[in-house]
Simulated assay, not measured.
Amino acid sequence: MFYFAYGSNMLIARLAERVPSVRPAGRAWLVGHQLHFHLSGSDESGKCNVLHTGNDSDIVHGALYELDAERLDRLHAAEGPPYVFLELDVGTPDGVVRAATYRGRPEYLDDALVPFDWYRDFVTHGAREHGLPPDYVARLEGVTTWRDPDEQRAQHNRRILQHQATNVIRDPVRN
């Protein structure tokens, strides 16, 4: 199955922690949506969400992966109750494909939330890994953050940014 990642799961090392194997399939985009960091995480910081606007000029860029649909338990557990798992049409350089993704449930959204710096870094590093448009990456880099008060959690997550996953399947034709 195809999976569209638009937040921290764009970072290959982050997603590779959560699924048995990862096959990057290129960049993709979701039309009629805006990216917000307004989903309430279990750590009380803002996490990414795609908000449906219906406006074709609103586009969320992200990464497309091929994942084993039967082995997503850890990914679903990591995303947790704040998200619903659904399928949407996403654009790719080769045309439109149907891909699964996560969208925040309304009761978990709070526009006053701000992401931790390490979380925003997952998103920006992942965006650069997949060659997303430079102006989009620049907007992500401009997102206001705050320092995680739990230094142990922050250090753990910063290590993920440096990790080279071994369960990544590279298709030389695509990547």
Score class of each variant (00 low, 15 high):
residue 14 R to L: 03
residue 14 R to K: 15
residue 15 L to S: 12
residue 15 L to F: 07
residue 16 A to Q: 07
residue 16 A to M: 11
residue 16 A to C: 06
residue 17 E to M: 14
residue 17 E to D: 15
residue 19 V to K: 10
residue 20 P to A: 09
residue 20 P to V: 03
residue 21 S to N: 09
residue 22 V to A: 04
residue 22 V to W: 03
residue 22 V to C: 07
residue 22 V to G: 04
residue 22 V to E: 11
residue 23 R to M: 08
residue 24 P to A: 12
residue 24 P to V: 06
residue 24 P to I: 10
residue 25 A to S: 12
residue 26 G to L: 08
residue 26 G to M: 04
residue 27 R to A: 09
residue 27 R to L: 13
residue 27 R to F: 01
residue 29 W to E: 00
residue 30 L to N: 05
residue 31 V to Y: 02
residue 31 V to S: 10
residue 32 G to H: 04
residue 33 H to N: 12
residue 33 H to D: 05
residue 33 H to K: 10
residue 34 Q to W: 01
residue 36 H to A: 11
residue 37 F to A: 08
residue 38 H to F: 04
residue 38 H to A: 09
residue 39 L to E: 13
residue 40 S to Q: 14
residue 41 G to K: 11
residue 41 G to N: 10
residue 42 S to W: 11
residue 42 S to L: 11
residue 43 D to M: 05
residue 43 D to N: 11
residue 44 E to C: 08
residue 44 E to H: 15
residue 45 S to N: 11
residue 45 S to H: 13
residue 46 G to Q: 05
residue 47 K to H: 14
residue 47 K to G: 07
residue 48 C to T: 09
residue 48 C to W: 00
residue 49 N to C: 12
residue 49 N to A: 12
residue 49 N to K: 01
residue 49 N to V: 09
residue 51 L to G: 00
residue 52 H to A: 14
residue 52 H to N: 06
residue 52 H to C: 06
residue 52 H to F: 08
residue 53 T to R: 13
residue 53 T to E: 00
residue 53 T to A: 01
residue 54 G to R: 07
residue 54 G to C: 05
residue 55 N to Y: 02
residue 56 D to Y: 02
residue 57 S to Y: 05
residue 57 S to W: 10
residue 57 S to F: 06
residue 57 S to K: 15
residue 58 D to M: 13
